[in-house]
């Protein structure tokens, strides 16, 4: 059986940190954003921890994380097969 996987796209600062535009991550059932983030911290370091606002426990409002094009704020957001996750910054609005 094919393993389930998602596409993660990095822009701006996240592209600088990871030196990658896009990666593919395999996922298991019941995957959440938090799990993905933990993996990214392991791979690319603590900068990814700063995505979370430590006071609210949610994704910081000066970070833009998009799941299939929709901005998300909760870390327990469900991630499923073929999802596209974008790590970005809210800038401008062209």
């Amino acid at each position: 059986m094919m393993k389930e996987s998602i596409e993660i796209i990095f822009t701006a600062t996240f592209r600088e940190i990871t030196k990658k535009r896009k990666i593919i991550e395999e996922i298991n059932e019941d995957c959440t954003f938090e799990r993905i983030l933990t993996r990214l911290v392991k791979k690319y370091g603590n900068d990814f921890n700063n995505v979370i606002n430590s006071q609210t426990g949610k994704i910081s409002s000066d970070i833009l994380i998009m799941l299939n094009g929709k901005g998300i704020r909760d870390i327990d957001e469900k991630i499923k097969d073929k999802d596209v996750l974008i790590f970005s910054l809210p800038v401008g609005g062209g």
């Binding site: 822009t11 833009l64 094009g69 974008i86 970005s88 800038v91 401008g92 062209g94």
Partner: peptide
């Protein structure tokens, strides 16, 4: 990156 940074978002999302 200036305003060019917007492209990274818009040309990813559509």
């Amino acid at each position: 990156w200036g305003t060019l940074i917007i492209y990274s978002n818009t040309n990813t999302t559509g």
